[in-house]
């Protein structure tokens, strides 16, 4: 009976839509084989059973946006050997980081009749702003094949094979005709982190940056191309200010165009 213990997996949720952790349950073909290799020790969306930590691998979904969560993430870190932040909320603060550009009190009073019942932070921030993160998996939502790769890499003690280039390269590989060059459709593909499979251009629409900026993205150059295609300053503010608005250089680029608006 004293077989080698399976590594323990925990899934944690902070401010989010649940979509990224759902990706794990959406691995319909891999789910049952996976639980042969790993013990799902703490995953409230899937199970009421909780196995005590410490955990070998923690997947963290969501951003930090309340005083309570800012405390809780430290407990999660202490209980985790490896911590992987999954999705745009956990890696960039998510769409709820749009509060970071305004006075959050104004937001609370728009939605809630009794604002004093609401305890929230002025900013929604990524996990790495609070604790050490061992790996970040991008996307709104994450790509489930990449999630399986990350878990597999962890099980084998190697670095995850997750590409870092732009959506453009993925798009070319799919053999798409460039929507920006051929159709004049504004596209964030040249500045956006790969991983989605270049879905939007494959459906005749421009990329809207849901995987966030790639490393060393030339957002300034891309904005010039957009302006050439007719985008005005307020369009540029909005396009950088969605699901990864708080990630650089999208953050700074939207600020630049905001200052030009006035």
């Amino acid at each position: 009976m004293a077989k080698k213990q399976k590594p323990k997996l925990a899934v944690w949720k902070f401010a989010s839509c649940d979509g990224c952790q759902l990706s794990l349950l959406d691995c319909e073909d891999q789910l049952l084989p996976l639980v042969g290799q790993i013990e799902i020790a703490n995953f409230p969306e899937a199970s009421r059973a909780v196995v005590k930590g410490p955990y070998d691998l923690s997947l963290v979904e969501g951003s930090i946006s309340t005083p309570h969560d800012a405390e809780r993430i430290h407990q999660v870190r202490r209980a985790s050997k490896f911590l992987v932040a999954i999705g745009a909320c956990a890696t960039a603060g998510g769409i709820q980081a749009l509060r970071n550009f305004v006075d959050v009190k104004d937001f609370v009073s728009i939605v809630y009749a009794t604002p004093e019942y609401i305890d929230t932070l002025t900013k929604s921030t990524p996990i790495a702003e609070h604790v050490k993160v061992d790996f970040e998996l991008r996307g709104c939502p994450i790509n489930k094949e990449q999630l399986v790769e990350v878990i597999g890499a962890f099980l084998q003690g190697r670095k995850p094979n997750v590409r870092q280039h732009s959506v453009c390269i993925e798009c070319k590989r799919r053999g798409n005709i460039c929507v920006m060059v051929a159709h004049g459709t504004p596209c964030l593909g040249p500045a956006t982190h790969t991983g989605c499979g270049a879905i939007c251009p494959s459906y005749d629409r421009g990329c809207y940056g849901c995987y966030g900026p790639m490393e060393s993205a030339n957002a300034g150059g891309l904005s010039l191309v957009w302006e050439g295609l007719g985008a005005n300053q307020s369009d540029l503010v909005q396009i950088y200010r969605t699901f990864n608005a708080y990630a650089e250089p999208f953050y700074t680029e939207s600020r630049i165009h905001e200052s030009k608006e006035h």
Partner: peptide, 21 residues
């Protein structure tokens, strides 16, 4: 569940963005 204030940040956005947001 932490509040995320969708109804607040939808203000000022284009109708075209509402389905994705």
């Amino acid at each position: 569940e932490p509040p995320r204030f969708f109804e607040a940040f939808l203000r000022g956005r284009s109708f075209r963005e509402a389905p994705d947001i």
